[in-house]
């Protein structure tokens, strides 16, 4: 399977990266995808996929009050904060006519 321009554009959009065709070609994506495609010769008939090796079930945590980070701590690593320092700030996402 080859990384066509349409595919490059789609993956670029899905992963929110600026990926030009030239960059995609330099990343050698075709050869890696072809290589992982070798898996198809492995017989997995009747086998369930395995997503984790953890042999234990996740347990519910106790319903108790725990301390959470303060606003100051949450905003410590960003300057994208509104004037009142209460919310993250991003450009408007609602389009107006």
């Amino acid at each position: 399977m080859a990384f066509t321009k349409a595919m490059t554009d789609k993956m670029s959009r899905l992963s929110q990266l600026e990926l030009t065709e030239a960059v995609a070609s330099n990343l050698k994506l075709d050869s890696i995808l072809e290589w992982v495609g070798e898996l198809k010769v492995c017989d997995t008939e009747g086998i369930d996929p395995m997503f984790s090796t953890a042999p234990f079930n996740m347990k519910m945590r106790e319903d108790k009050k725990i301390s959470t980070p303060t606003r100051e701590e949450i905003f410590f690593n960003t300057s994208n904060v509104d004037g009142d320092k209460k919310f993250f700030s991003i450009p408007k996402v609602i389009e107006t006519k």
């Binding site: 898996l39 492995c42 017989d43 997995t44 086998i47 369930d48 996929p49 395995m50 997503f51 090796t53």
Partner: peptide, 10 residues
């Protein structure tokens, strides 16, 4: 497919 191969290996 890879996740199934993972179980085979396991």
């Amino acid at each position: 497919k890879a996740s199934k191969v993972r179980r085979v290996l396991y």
